[in-house]
Design a binder for these strands. Structure first.
Lengths: 131, 131
DNA sequence: CTATTTACCTACTATGTCAATAGGTAAATA
DNA sequence: TATTTACCTATTGACATAGTAGGTAAATAG
């Protein structure tokens, strides 16, 4: 299940897309509009900055803003940055060691197909699509 | 992410599909073939029995067996029984109270579409498809 | 140059879920 | 009656989730 971090991150990105053409948007404003504590959002924007999806600017007149145009962000990359990866099962997650049963596992192809479908869906959907 | 309970349940169902035409299959045998502790599988088959996907029989010659033919089980119902539900976000999970932001939430339609895709995929796939 | 506003940083915590283990009782058969 | 099986309740360690608390650093306005 997608955690609050992933879901809130998406809402932050949408909020920035809607308000940042004028410049930097303070987190305080986003927190109020999105009705999420500013403290918790700090954790989220930190990851978004680290992932180069947004950039921050300190001091008066500061805040956060998008690095690209909304149509240049896929939902998938936003969620993936927040959740670590979007594998459906542990055996297929990025840092997992090869399962000894992989070759004869009858369920593995199913999970691969599932993951591929999910990936295609989330990466073809853009931030601008839900604006 | 699909938990071990969901994944192991699927493997138990497959194991039964492969071995139960002759009658009841003891859990001990399944545990050995699947390389999962019998103790842990007990929890899983308990849920499968409760969900009427398999039935058990005690005593010598006992074990577990499928209630229907493999093509009559969808992967979705197996996973759903084990995971509780297959909602992608808390707001859409079965027992969730209505979110006050639901009407104006820009992300909700996305999650609905996502859930619907996942549901279609997992319910159209049958146990017999991965046999 | 000072006050204010903002981002940015480290640490902490309560709660819950996951993945299992332990140690039994009940039922059916040989 | 002994054996084999399912079935039941309780417990546990580890980890993730969803936050909170209390600061420091940077930038701007006056």
């Amino acid at each position: 299940m997608i955690s609050t971090k992933g879901r809130y991150a998406l809402r932050v990105m949408l909020d920035l897309a809607e308000h940042s053409e004028l410049g930097f948007v303070p987190l305080k404003d986003i927190a109020e509009r999105q009705e999420v504590s500013k403290k918790y959002l700090e954790i989220i924007v930190k990851d978004l900055v680290k992932g180069k999806l947004i950039k921050g600017s300190s001091g008066k007149g500061g805040g956060y803003t998008l690095c690209r145009k909304p149509q240049e962000y896929s939902i998938g990359e936003i969620i993936e940055i927040m959740e670590g990866n979007l594998a459906s099962v542990a055996c297929l997650s990025s840092g997992a060691e090869e399962c000894p049963r992989a070759k004869r596992c009858k369920t593995l192809p199913l999970w691969r197909e599932y993951d591929s479908m999910v990936h295609d869906f989330l990466y073809s959907k853009k931030l601008s699509d839900i604006l």
